[in-house]
Design a protein around this nucleic acid. Structure first.
Lengths: 136, 136
DNA sequence: GAGATAACCTATAAAAATAGTAGGAATTGG
DNA sequence: CCAATTCCTACTATTTTTATAGGTTATCTC
């Protein structure tokens, strides 16, 4: 139960983007220099962020990324979902855990895991990018 | 952000223990047969559970484990803490992430991660073993 | 158009964490 | 003594995560 560095990096990068953008796209190079993050890795994260509609990109020189939505509508959950697809996994239905499953699905634990999953989803949904930026 | 199989196994095993114990110790072999869990792995988990005061053990034949506390005072957090020591990690202070730390500690993100950590701790603390058993 | 800078894409490597196995020692009840 | 059990340590295998590498395509400036 921890927050992945993917998520950490994405949050830091998006916060940096929100702050250094003056309605102009910001390049990954710039973001990563300011936040001292690994460029090539963050590139990959941004492509996922784009696929999930959190940022938009412009090509070429002077290009870069911009937020697709306002900072008060981008949630931590959005970010986690985008960058760390399986950030809340529930078990019993994870195929690769085939050996020691609770048998007789659906088992009585499903409900518990699902409830936890929902709680976490709601919680992370409630944390928006503007609140994160606000305390920097 | 997911719950480890360590935690899943420990929860299932402790629930099984609580249910099949008639004030007598239950062996790991029995627990694992009923829940179809890998015995040797669960053994290791139980030693951690013991170290953390969640169960007590009796040696020898007819030995096994018993809950050290009542089912309404053992929380999911207790279990996670015991079995999955670093279940809530907060960053910036994780030494092995030395390369791409936010610089100038403490950075503005600390507060966020710590708040999340606390929330999760409180939430998992609120889920007790008796509630888990109740819906089986 | 040339050159620079950027997103975009895929593959691979390196590192870390997780899950699981193995073999035996110590303890206790029958 | 024998069987069942906890207890302990080490090792192996697998999976996931993090990071790097090398290149392609698009766009801006000159």
């Amino acid at each position: 139960m921890y927050i992945s560095t993917k998520t950490e990096y994405a949050v830091r990068a998006l916060a940096e983007l929100a702050l250094s953008s003056n309605n102009k796209p910001v390049s990954i190079t710039e973001i990563c220099e300011k936040q001292s993050l690994p460029r090539k890795y963050v590139e990959q994260l941004f492509r996922k962020l784009k696929q999930n509609g959190l940022v938009v990109s412009t090509h070429g020189a002077l290009g870069g990324y911009s937020l697709a939505e306002s900072v008060d509508s981008i949630s931590l959950r959005n970010i986690m979902d985008a960058v760390d697809e399986s950030y809340v996994k529930s078990f019993c239905n994870r195929e690769y855990r085939t050996l020691h499953h609770c048998k007789g699905l659906p088992c009585g634990f499903h409900e518990l895991w699902d409830e936890i999953k929902e709680h976490l989803n709601d919680y992370f949904e409630s944390i928006k990018l503007d609140q994160i930026i606000a305390r920097l």
